[in-house]
Amino acid sequence: MTSGTPSSGDVVIEVTDLMIRYGDIVAVDTASFVAHAGEVTVLLGPNGAGKTSLVEHLEGYRPASGGQARVLGLDPVRDHGTLVQRVGIMLQDGGIQPAIRPQEVLRQYAGFFPNPLDVDDLLGGLGLAHCATTTVRRLSGGERQRLSLALALIGRPEVLLLDEPTAGVDLEGREQVRSTLESLRCDGVGVLLTTHDLDEAERVADRVVVIDRGRIAAEGSLAEITSHSDNSLQFRCHGSLDVTALAAALGAVVRASGQHSYTIDAPADPDRIARLTSWLAEEGLTATEIRASGTRLEDVYRTLIVTHDHDGTDRSTGGAS
């Protein structure tokens, strides 16, 4: 990783054993991952997982308590003055005066960069031309988010750090954000965006980094992350379950994949599901949530978060599905 202009595929963000603490609270715990130029990397995790803390370190707002991060080869805090020329950011909320107009604030930020994008082109491209001279306080949530994205783009950044860019954005706005991300990807910009929205992650991500309680639970391309969950059947069951006996009954490998949760490494065909439930019934056990893992990121995501739950607190799913 160099501090020169990156080309597609170059590592633009490298996080190594990063720790961020607030007093006794560990917000980010030995996190490591990379993001590349010309790719959209999605930092996916539930609320409170440490996404914003991590991104705010990359933006130079928060010091690291341990480990390190490099953006374009530079230290985000120490080299903040250099990075602000090359990195575009979008805060999770706010950052814009309610009394200002989109055109004004874009012209203001355009004045901060040597070679900014054209303000009117940007407004048009993000579907904001109709409200260019409306004060921000009168904009919808989605319009504000897109304005915030426009501010991140105005200086032709090499890296974009977007914290929940589609939160509160309507469907049409999401399409606009997605097509903007697509053209940035083609231009070789490295994008790191955070979301708790699986659907969004699945649609835009080249690479997914799953974070839970400050720890990276999985990292890889969408294909890599979803591949190792192919052909497996998962269920939760309270009570003592004899894994070996069940494995014998089903003729497949059965693993405990977390407290009260188990994975059967075999295709989830109807026959196997039937045999599982009848075996459980014979043992006087009840399964909660029997799920066949497909290639949906949602399943992987849930599994990862459940597997991560070593202290047994159940917050893995929103009820049986």
Partner: peptide
């Protein structure tokens, strides 16, 4: 409003 925070990430 976070205006100062946002400006902090700009070259101003």
């Amino acid at each position: 409003y976070g205006v100062l925070k946002r400006l902090g990430a700009s070259p101003l």
